[in-house]
Computed example of a mutant assay.
Amino acid sequence: MTKNTMRFDHLVLWVADPVAAAAFYETAVGLEPMRVAEFAEGKVAFPSIRVNEETILDLAPHSFAPRMTMLPGSVESAGHPVNHVCLSLPGDDFDALRARLEEHGVPVSGIDTGLSGARGDATRSFYFRDPDGNVFEARHYED
């Protein structure tokens, strides 16, 4: 991949409690939290979680909405989750994520096959919600 190739950098999720959300993503999903202590100390506006070396999810508290003034109507977006976020994982990690979610009591959907995505048709996928109602799809493409 070249430096000039467009990439997905981050997505902002509205959450009720960013510290609790970061803990969920760390323990149940297995993602690395970032800037949680700084957020708790009031040094940054929100924490994030790292998906991979190029992509993060920002965990914006609903109280952050008044600062969303970059476009008309941005303030009103608080509390409106996106349809879903899809995470692509290798086979072993896919299985480990599903098991970890079930261990944490997170309801998961059945396994779907052949759903189309960025890399073609996925071998298998399932869906789950975070504590704020944001929907995630986990998928595995044949290696």
Results as ranks from 00 to 15, higher is better:
85 V>Y: 14
93 D>C: 05
33 P>C: 10
51 V>W: 07
89 L>N: 07
72 P>A: 01
88 S>M: 09
46 F>M: 07
37 A>D: 14
33 P>R: 12
36 V>M: 07
41 E>Q: 12
65 A>F: 02
53 E>C: 12
58 D>I: 03
42 G>S: 13
36 V>G: 06
62 H>E: 03
95 D>P: 02
53 E>R: 15
28 A>T: 07
31 L>K: 05
44 V>P: 14
46 F>C: 01
34 M>Q: 08
24 F>Q: 04
89 L>D: 05
37 A>E: 13
56 I>F: 06
97 L>P: 00
22 A>D: 04
33 P>A: 10
74 S>V: 00
60 A>R: 02
67 R>Y: 10
101 L>W: 05
69 T>W: 01
78 A>F: 01
68 M>E: 05
97 L>S: 05
101 L>C: 05
92 D>M: 04
49 I>W: 02
49 I>K: 04
67 R>C: 11
74 S>F: 04
84 H>P: 13
83 N>V: 08
40 A>D: 14
79 G>K: 08
22 A>L: 04
37 A>R: 11
26 E>F: 02
74 S>W: 01
28 A>Y: 08
63 S>P: 00
88 S>C: 08
70 M>P: 06
83 N>T: 13
78 A>E: 02
50 R>M: 06
57 L>P: 06
71 L>W: 11
58 D>K: 09
93 D>G: 07
82 V>R: 09
36 V>F: 04
52 N>Y: 12
89 L>C: 06
36 V>K: 06
98 R>A: 12
30 G>E: 09
69 T>S: 12
39 F>W: 12
49 I>G: 03
72 P>S: 03
62 H>T: 03
83 N>S: 14
23 A>L: 08
94 F>D: 09
50 R>S: 07
45 A>L: 03
85 V>W: 10
65 A>G: 03
87 L>I: 13
85 V>G: 06
71 L>N: 09
50 R>F: 05
30 G>Y: 09
49 I>P: 06
91 G>R: 15
26 E>I: 01
80 H>L: 07
78 A>C: 00
98 R>T: 02
32 E>L: 09
53 E>S: 15
